[in-house]
Write a protein that binds this DNA or RNA. Structure first.
Ligand code: ZN
Ligand code: ZN
Ligand code: ZN
Ligand code: ZN
Lengths: 143, 143
DNA sequence: ATGAAAGATGCAAACATTTGAAAAATATTT
DNA sequence: AAATATTTTTCAAATGTTTGCATCTTTCAT
């Protein structure tokens, strides 16, 4: 129906058909620049593509994750959040008291990864690290 | 109905009523010594306490986790696994090719944790680290 | 441009987990 | 030991995520 001239090799969704749903979803995640959940993404996508289904959202989140384009985060809610994967991988510190999420990077994690790779002859493609505990404010409240 | 003389302060389930379901579940997890999922735990518990419900299993897994007795692991399946928390915390390396799970410990992770604690004045109570990738066998197959 | 093959989508159903509320068990007070 | 207060359990319903299958879309070869 529609005239599309995008070759599959050009886009970031390497080797896979480029559908409207796919580019739309990836576009929304890129623009968002924060931790989106599946339902937020679904509702945002519906505005531009009203017939899109939640299953498609989940299936593409899974695909984008496998392609290394996004990261899934389990931050403490009952559901997951997703964010774009940039140059430097970051990790999360979650306060069990107030729910605040602090993002951080750590050179020690890179060292640990190198060691693991060598010792196990393993090709590590992704690292998921979350630390939980209590922030300074919540620590004080608990006394 | 039943004569129980266990005082709540004695058991490991500090400050909480000690129910049959609770001690049974914790006992099974202790004995298992491997990564159990909620349904396996439920079926094992049913053998000794046929009226136990799956909701009780989930609610107690949540409690044990909060008390630091067990750890929840998301190893790549659609569902979680649980294991007892011993003296030394360990982490997981999951092969995306064959699904094998390698457990490891790392002093670098401890260093990273210390730094995070100091820099953010944060009291870290648990660390969840998973690395994904391809083991040596699966790497070779992919060539 | 057309047709065939491969792959994605939408829907509904299945699965995994959480939660409200009434009933039951445990703990505390008398 | 009985009465009361507190917490847990069960069941059922709700929420979050995955999956089978028929249909539609995209891609590839002509
Ligand atoms: Zn806090
Ligand atoms: Zn983040
Ligand atoms: Zn492997
Ligand atoms: Zn383990």
């Amino acid at each position: 129906m529609r005239m599309k001239t995008i070759r599959k090799e050009e886009g970031p969704i390497a080797g896979r058909p480029v559908t409207n749903q796919r580019s739309l979803l990836l576009d929304i995640i890129r623009q968002a620049n924060r931790h989106l959940d599946a339902d937020e993404l679904y509702r945002l996508a519906k505005k531009r593509e009203p017939r899109i289904s939640l299953a498609t959202v989940y299936r593409n989140l899974k695909l984008f994750k496998e392609l290394g384009l996004i990261a899934e985060r389990k931050l403490g809610d009952t559901h997951s959040h997703y964010e774009i994967r940039g140059a430097a991988d970051h990790h999360h510190l979650v306060c069990l008291g107030c729910g605040q999420v602090i993002e951080f990077e750590s050179p020690f994690i890179a060292k640990a990864t190198d060691k693991i790779k060598r010792e196990n002859d393993f090709d590590v493609t992704s690292i998921q690290l979350k630390m939980e505990g209590y922030c300074s404010k919540c620590k004080k409240k608990m006394k």
